[in-house]
């Protein structure tokens, strides 16, 4: 499923106009993004939580050529699925 299908399903299930469903879905993901860009944690009960990890830069090597490269510091978000999501996925298996 992709974002436009997500919007359409939300609109159909709840009998709401597409443009309203679009605002709900876009604002939902935008809020999560904005928080993580600021370095904040995000907790969505029932679904999961996100946190941002900071990685320091380091001197790495290109394993193919052996050439040494500088790896820039970076930030990466991590997602931890919530209990409800895990249980939902593992029902009836």
């Amino acid at each position: 499923m992709n974002k436009s299908e997500l919007i359409r399903t939300l609109a159909e299930k709840n009998n709401i106009p597409m443009d309203y469903a679009t605002i709900v879905v876009n604002t939902f993901f935008q809020s999560i993004k904005d928080a993580m860009i600021q370095g904040d944690r995000v907790e969505i009960r029932g679904f999961g939580s996100f946190k941002v990890k900071d990685y320091q830069g380091y001197k790495g090597r290109n394993p193919k050529t052996g050439q040494s490269v500088n790896v820039q510091p970076k930030r990466l978000p991590f997602f931890r699925p919530g209990k409800e999501l895990k249980d939902h996925l593992n029902e009836d298996i």
Partner: peptide
């Protein structure tokens, strides 16, 4: 929305949110 997302991950094994 969250319940649709959960079902989608279960049914399609993937949920793709562009830009996210």
């Amino acid at each position: 929305l969250l319940s649709i997302m959960k079902s989608a991950v279960k049914r399609d094994h993937a949920l793709l949110v562009s830009g996210f």
